[in-house]
Simulated assay, not measured.
Amino acid sequence: MKPHSNWLFVRLARWLATAAWALALLAPVAPAHAGPFTVADEKSVRAVVEGQLGAFARDDASKAFSHAAPNVREAVGTAANFMAMVRNSYPAVYRPASVGFLKPEGRNDQVIQRVQMTDASGDSWPAIYSLERQKNKSWRITGCVVVENKGRMA
């Protein structure tokens, strides 16, 4: 591996660890215990994820990176590194053929947004986004876990 590739791999590993940590923190906010969000909060959370997906579709690294929370930006370093990581490690997120949003779940300033993605081959990819409300009241993505679903959408 080239030294630059090693550096990117370390950054990716840190980002994945951060995402796993963020999802572990959100475990107590399972649907049965979730507090209600306002309709405005639900729309804002969805808009952030849609905004990032739209930025990926346009190859707009800066805009995609702007939807990431500070913990993700620090772990990845630059918008270009972020875009490369998503392109190489999350192809279903980078170029989904279709997306379907479930109702966001959470409480206080943390939320999970589940998104059902389908890739160009028709394979289904459930994605679980964790988001956190920032001090300025905006929502930012703190992590995303994509799970391969062995089936296809009907």
Results as ranks from 00 to 15, higher is better:
Ala69Ile: 02
Ala84Asn: 15
Ser62Pro: 13
Ala64Phe: 11
Pro96Tyr: 01
Val99Arg: 08
Val72His: 04
His67Ile: 11
Lys103Phe: 00
Met83Tyr: 03
Ala97Thr: 10
Arg73Trp: 01
Val93His: 02
Leu53Asp: 04
Arg95Phe: 01
Gly54Met: 03
Arg58Tyr: 01
Phe82Trp: 14
Phe82Cys: 08
Asn88Thr: 15
His67Thr: 14
Gly100Trp: 00
Gly106Asp: 06
Val99Met: 09
Ala47Lys: 12
Gly77Thr: 01
Val76Glu: 13
His67Leu: 05
Val48His: 00
Val72Glu: 10
Pro70Arg: 02
Glu74Ala: 15
Arg87His: 05
Gly77Gln: 09
Ser66Trp: 01
Ala79Gln: 11
Glu50Gln: 13
Ala68His: 07
Val99Asn: 08
Ala92Gly: 00
Asn88Pro: 08
Gly77Arg: 03
Ser66Lys: 04
Pro91Tyr: 02
Asn71Cys: 12
Asp60Lys: 03
Ala57Trp: 02
Tyr90Pro: 07
Gln52Ile: 07
Ala79Pro: 11
Leu102Asn: 15
Arg95Leu: 10
Val48Pro: 11
Val48Tyr: 02
Tyr90Cys: 07
Asn71Tyr: 01
Ala57Ser: 13
Met83Lys: 12
Asp59Tyr: 08
His67Ser: 08
Leu53Tyr: 07
Asp60Asn: 13
Val86Cys: 01
Ser62Gln: 15
Thr78Cys: 08
Gly54Gln: 12
Phe82Ala: 08
Phe56Cys: 13
Ala79His: 06
Gly106Trp: 03
Gly54Pro: 14
Asn81Lys: 06
Gln52Ala: 12
Asn81Ile: 06
Ala68Trp: 07
Ser62Phe: 10
Ala61Glu: 09
Asn88Asp: 15
Gly54Asp: 14
Val49Ala: 02
Ala55Trp: 13
Phe65Ala: 01
Ala69Ser: 11
Pro104His: 11
Leu102Trp: 01
Glu105Leu: 11
His67Phe: 14
Pro104Trp: 05
Asp60His: 07
Phe56Asn: 06
Ala92Met: 06
Lys63Tyr: 11
Ala68Lys: 05
Pro70Trp: 04
Asn81Leu: 04
Gly51Ala: 09
Ala68Gln: 15
Asp59Gly: 14
Ser66Val: 04
Arg87Asp: 11
Gly51Asp: 07
Pro104Thr: 07
Pro96Ser: 09
Ala97Tyr: 07
Asp59Gln: 14
Glu74His: 13
Leu53Asn: 08
Arg87Ile: 00
Val49Pro: 13
Glu74Asp: 15
Gly106Glu: 02
Asp59Arg: 14
Gly77Ser: 03
Ala92Pro: 00
Asp60Glu: 14
Val48Glu: 14
Ala57Glu: 12
Arg87Ser: 15
Val86Leu: 10
Ser89Lys: 07
Pro70Val: 09
Lys63Glu: 12
Val93Gly: 04
Met85Asn: 09
Arg58Thr: 07
Arg73Gln: 14
Ser66Cys: 02
Arg58Trp: 03
Val49Glu: 10
Ala64Gln: 04
Ser98Cys: 01
Glu74Ile: 08
Ala57Gly: 12
Pro91Val: 02
Leu102Gly: 12
Glu50Trp: 04
